[in-house]
Write a protein that binds this DNA or RNA. Sequence first.
DNA 1: TTGTATGCGTTATCAA
DNA 2: TTGATAACGCATACAA
Lengths: 395, 395
Amino acid sequence: MRKKRVRTWGVLSHSCDELPLASGGNVFTWMNRVSTRQKITIKDVAREAGCGIATASRVLNRSGPASAEVRERVEKAAGELGFSFSAIGRALQSSRSMTIGCLVPSLANPVFAEAVQGVQEALTGSGYQLLIASSNYDENADNDAIATLLAKEVDGLIVTMAAPDSSVMLKRARQRGTPVSLMFHDPIDGLPTAHVDNFEAAREVARRFADLGHRRTAFLALRFATSDRSRNRYAGFHAECRARGLPDPALIELSEAEANTPELLSSILATLDGLSAVFASNDFLAIAVQKAAQLMGKRVPRDLSVVGFDGIEIGRLLEVPLTTIETAPDAMGRQAARTLLDLMQGGACIQQPPLPFNFRAGGTLAPPRVESRDDDQGATWPPSVHSLKTDLKQG
Amino acid sequence: MRKKRVRTWGVLSHSCDELPLASGGNVFTWMNRVSTRQKITIKDVAREAGCGIATASRVLNRSGPASAEVRERVEKAAGELGFSFSAIGRALQSSRSMTIGCLVPSLANPVFAEAVQGVQEALTGSGYQLLIASSNYDENADNDAIATLLAKEVDGLIVTMAAPDSSVMLKRARQRGTPVSLMFHDPIDGLPTAHVDNFEAAREVARRFADLGHRRTAFLALRFATSDRSRNRYAGFHAECRARGLPDPALIELSEAEANTPELLSSILATLDGLSAVFASNDFLAIAVQKAAQLMGKRVPRDLSVVGFDGIEIGRLLEVPLTTIETAPDAMGRQAARTLLDLMQGGACIQQPPLPFNFRAGGTLAPPRVESRDDDQGATWPPSVHSLKTDLKQG
DNA sequence: TTGTATGCGTTATCAA
DNA sequence: TTGATAACGCATACAA
């Protein structure tokens, strides 16, 4: 016999003990349940209704025949006892947890938070709940999280992680037959994904820059190593510059500190002579760049053009609205959830086309100042220390 | 005998069927498991190791004695089989799900998203996972969500909701003995909460306004009905104005559309003659107000002072940094999680003091223009249609 | 040191 | 139309 663990509530200012013990009706039965703290199972309902548990189950689930009279008794008993099914018992018996695991790098990044919110929305009414995990952009944490989610026997997985293509746990998930749907990633390894075409979107930015006459450009990113999104954006940006015979854009990977400290950021930008346009890997970075430019005495977009990525709402409301690539993280979440739901219902794995992006004009993009128009004027363009290999894709 | 449901993976572009069937080693056993898709239980491990399940359990959990040799066999078997415990089986047996339920209005609001991220952080390493739900600010959805969470037998609950003090399901949670910890709410009904003192913070804003000579002020909020936070902020703001003998601040509740459309917002602000300072219930709103002011040809802070609430990071980076009350949603999440962990370990329910807030000076607050300095000059101050009752707290 | 048997809450089977 | 019973995966009391 296992001993019942009785949890103590500790000292509450309005503890239940203060309630009058002998008061009738609701409060009294309420007290009863509180003091015993017994969990009410279908067995209790059956006993109270004077029937077998199978019958009670059938009635409460409407899953089989039952005479009108016993049905009534069962429903009454369940109501009075405040019975509700244990999802755990159910999960064990049905081997379906009715739970979906979701892994994102961090909820502190509104892009992921909105995506998860989108997942939630698509899941409401489906009967599935969301078990959530975040890895803080750490590859090991990614795998640990998936392992835990799998141990909880989630019925499906919605994932954004550092390295989905090489994750052992993700492979394990598929071995177990747990459907997986990706968010933000490019299609990988036969896993369906809800994404935008980062490569194409970035090419669009390069095109705009080039059309206006920009030559010296830079791409700023925060976590190049753990973000295939950033890498794809840079690849597309770079590819288009190449295709047009323009100089390779400088690739600058910032630390958290550099991104959040305008002073640091401006000193980095200052090393880039002749720079006339910056493509930031996300809108926050783009706004930080503007602040940094302000510190350097440069005006946006007159002295420096800045384009962001994501299309966060607040960019619209800035004094000079941010030029950016609009995406819809919530739509991404919704699509990922729908795809997973489909998969779990035995549907075929069909990869949806990338979700659309939209170039939002804003006011932070303009032609470069005339003086920087001319070309190979010498040695001022440094082979940036931050620069990485450039042929990431289609290079 | 229940029939095993075999889930089909559908048509994947790189389906496992494409892998060579007869290739040896890893791939082969991998295939094996894939094709059978049987879940490996401790029973399998025991059989493989040639011992009883109790022994296997003891070895794998290090929960009891075991000879070195059997220990080795069990661990080997577990490794080869790729065994991992089923959290569901465990939960059923131990009546602890190792899962914590978390309810917030929406993850699309970065304040809540950050708080949840804080919860996550405080939970890592604890062994608990987060089951998350969002209500979209709907009171009924709040209760439904808690009901579902309770059905999943969460070991604890972290909650931000529309009406915690009158929620039947929250009461039910306590009846069941499920520890509850609140976020963002003021202390209520003996439930511990992680919060900032909205009332005091708002008084601080009123004080700053008053000290600079502002008289005609307004409070802008988005969801007054479902947000005790907003109500408390208004109450504090109002109380301090009263205490100083200043006119009651106008209370303006905006619709989503009004808040996001600067044109609408400016037309609303235009109805407030003599208005010299606006206190917005959150930073996004404050930024929207600035945009609206810009549209009206007013300059901030010269013609209109604006103060926000929350202290989102981006406010710092604006061309003119937002004056606001800084709070730390992630700290709120962490505290709520720690409190809950404590409670679940049988700790007493002790209410932590409110988390500190900080008035961030920024650049959107300045003295009013001199012309609006004089007092009862007549009928221009309308008894705003949006105005609500004012005596919410401490009058 | 080990293994058998029981129960956790549920649903499905099957005989009444 | 009913109800006893066997799983489901695990941990543990208890007997060996």
